[in-house]
Write a protein that binds this DNA or RNA. Structure first.
Lengths: 185, 185
DNA sequence: ACCTGAACACCGTTCAAGT
DNA sequence: ACCTGAACACCGTTCAAGT
């Protein structure tokens, strides 16, 4: 559950890593892969998987934890290299990329928005967006007062665009629309 | 599958209606209600449910067919009574209302967007939005060229807002954002 | 032409028994 | 402290047998 609260016993740590490794592969091949099948492929009993990840969401969150982290850490970097508006845009592009490759992330973030247990990854995500919004506000590009949780919610469309050819263009069009909506008049 | 292609035999028609009636109730109590349980509650064999609705999506679409139809039919009415911009706004409010009451509609519309079988309800939906957009374009309120499918896609956030107290305000804020994004500069 | 309902393979989840 | 894996109740889906 916790990424590593107190050190796990060596075998437990090994199992945890192995489960995440197998789950990543299995889930990206098929987002609906059964937990039993993942446990079996990882060579652990079903109970072991449940001990480490008490729900499907917890497992997915475990798998994509690094990606979420990377996304959050990207914000300060983008803000030093680019003006706020393009920083926001780049960040959304990156978010879109993750969302489309890592199926299931969307559902998890959605669950995280209601479930109070998952704040560990949802919180930083919202904070990251908040930084981008405030920066845009300070530069006068964005209208003041935009809410980071709201923006994350709208950005959900990024995960519902099929990865196909037209997808790229659609993402661009829709991000334009959202950014126009955020802009100062 | 078809709402009523060629007339069904009397008993079949009766079963179909009964299934829809029970499914509406069961799904609104619990969006994940099992198809077996719905069949049982409707007093029909599992196979009968599958004969009428070959997939869960088809069933949900059957259940909410009337609501979707009503939504589509609302557009011309709104456009005669209101200027385009408020017509759009009112329509979105209504869409939001349906989405939050009738759980599962969102997933179905999403599926409908990829699956080519469901155009029967997705098509008219897109056409309805298109009318609203064109009207706003003609009046000079909306920037030209907005894509109706894109707009339906963004509006997906409407279904992911919890029905709670803060929900109403959130819907309002987010619709403002989208409308600002659509506006002519 | 349509319906029934048992049957199949599989699911998530639990929990006694092991080490 | 942690793991195993059989067991439970249930799922979606099919299909022989009925009318």
């Amino acid at each position: 559950m916790a990424s590593q609260g107190e050190a796990l016993r060596a075998d437990a740590q090994h199992n945890r890593d192995r489960i995440l490794e197998v789950a990543r592969e299995a889930l990206s091949a098929n987002p609906d892969a059964s937990l039993n099948s993942i446990a079996k492929a990882a060579g652990v009993g079903a109970g072991t998987l449940y001990r480490h990840f008490p729900s499907r969401e917890a497992l997915i969150l475990g798998v994509y934890h690094k990606e979420i982290r990377a996304l959050v850490d990207l914000v300060p970097e983008l803000l030093t290299k680019h003006p706020p508006l393009t920083a926001f845009r780049r960040w959304c592009d990156r978010l879109s990329h993750y969302g489309r490759i890592k199926h299931g992330l969307a559902e998890v973030l959605h669950a995280a928005m209601t479930d109070r247990d998952f704040n560990e990854s949802y919180g930083p995500m919202v904070a990251a967006i908040d930084r981008l919004l405030r920066a845009g506000e300070a530069s006068g590009d964005f209208a003041p007062g935009a809410n980071a949780e709201d923006v994350l919610l709208v950005l959900g469309f990024l995960w519902r665009i099929a990865p196909g050819e037209a997808g790229e263009a659609r993402v661009a069009r829709l991000l334009d629309l959202v950014i126009r909506g955020l802009r100062a008049r």
